[in-house]
Design a protein around this nucleic acid. Structure first.
Lengths: 218, 218
DNA sequence: GGCACCTCTCAGCGTGCTCTCAGCCACCCG
DNA sequence: CGGGTGGCTGAGAGCACGCTGAGAGGTGCC
């Protein structure tokens, strides 16, 4: 029996999914807000989660992030009313496995769901590795050449973002937007924190690309 | 022959389950209150137990707790009329193996039951061991480097949750949600109790990860 | 009733984190 | 070679976070 969790606050849609997926032979649980969904998903062993982005109490991105932090690697299919490319990227960045834009056809949803279920339990080891630096988001640990390095929250967030985009140059504005919520004027914070990272990981861990941003290399 | 015990005080439902499960090829016993169910489950070797939460004389949580204390590890499928998220967490925390909310479809119940039966006799609680700290949930004892350490209920619950998620950072909100029932605002209780654990187990037994939570490591 | 114990609240304190600022350095231009 | 822009860093202010001691309320036992 394949167990699926549906998290959506639109009662009509949720009920339709419940009925439809049950008819398809899935065992379906439903939650109507992010918090409830997160708890259910943490405590039960679902085979897949269908997750709306816009949710009361906790949005979809949050839920996925929290799940992955709690070491839950159930594949997630995200649903969103918006169709800006950013949403897709953000969703997948955050650890969702697939993405569907509302409105969608039920047949397509089932097909995508089956595709997710077919995949060998991938996602799993979300450790980021660049050169001799390893970052494990689930344990929040960073090691350089096998030696653990303590990181503060901000430092870790910055390093994680850089490592997730290891192959390209990341602009300071982009870093400011993603690692810091504020979108202020001053980009000096970024420089300061890059400095901290270099102090802890070695001067060459993060390379400066003048006029463009930063880059981590192996 | 697979033996199943059904504990439910709603006569109609109990009879329906008896008939349905028998038709599915199970050997079914029925009890109508918690005390009777507990006795039957203790004395006989069932392959699974279907257990209502709301019961006269002893509720479902109680029964599971009592069973586990008596070293009976028969898989339990809990039934509940409520669908608050907390019930699920409580049931599973207490040692149930799966959870179903009323009303449910009979087909789903059978499927879940089969899933439970398929599982290798897990549940049995290997003692938790992290570093030199050992926690035995069945005897509720904790030792550090072989020396027994007294623990109050809350302390034990907190330590157990931390140890079950050793190596990863566990957020205070998560701890509050799982170790304490309330989902209030104030997280200070968690800090206080972490302080108690440290006093008993050593300052370094639980590590603080500022801005993220706590972590126990081996 | 008195005592022991557990649980939780509260307020105060220390500290580590975050961020700003100003000055300096490095690199690229003419 | 000198000026200018972009980037780096040490110092330090502010503050949020986490820790702790004191104690109140509750419960169970003698």
């Amino acid at each position: 029996m394949v167990r699926v969790l549906v998290v959506d606050d639109e009662r009509g849609l949720a009920r339709a999914l419940l009925r439809g997926l049950t008819a398809e032979g899935f065992a379906v649980d439903v939650a109507h807000d992010g918090e409830a969904g997160l708890d259910l998903a943490t405590d039960n062993d679902y085979d897949a989660i269908v997750l709306d982005v816009m949710l009361p109490r906790r949005n979809g991105y949050d839920v996925v992030t929290a799940l992955r932090e709690r070491d839950v690697w159930t594949p997630v299919l995200m649903l969103s009313a918006k169709d800006g490319e950013h949403d897709v990227a953000d969703g997948l960045d955050v650890g969702a496995d697939d993405y569907l834009t509302k409105p969608f056809s039920f047949v397509v949803l089932v097909a995508r769901l089956r595709a997710l279920l077919r995949r060998p339990a991938q996602a799993r080891p979300a450790v980021l590795r660049v050169g001799e630096i390893v970052l494990d988001p689930s344990t929040r640990t960073v090691t350089r050449a096998g030696v653990e390095v303590e990181m503060t929250t901000r430092e870790l967030a910055l390093l994680e973002y850089l490592m997730r985009h290891a192959d390209r140059v990341v602009g300071k504005v982009e870093l400011r937007d993603h690692v810091w919520d504020s979108s202020g004027e001053d980009l000096n914070v970024v420089e300061v924190y890059v400095g901290y990272l270099r102090r802890k990981l070695g001067r060459d861990a993060v390379r400066t690309v003048r006029g463009a941003g930063y880059r981590v290399v192996g």
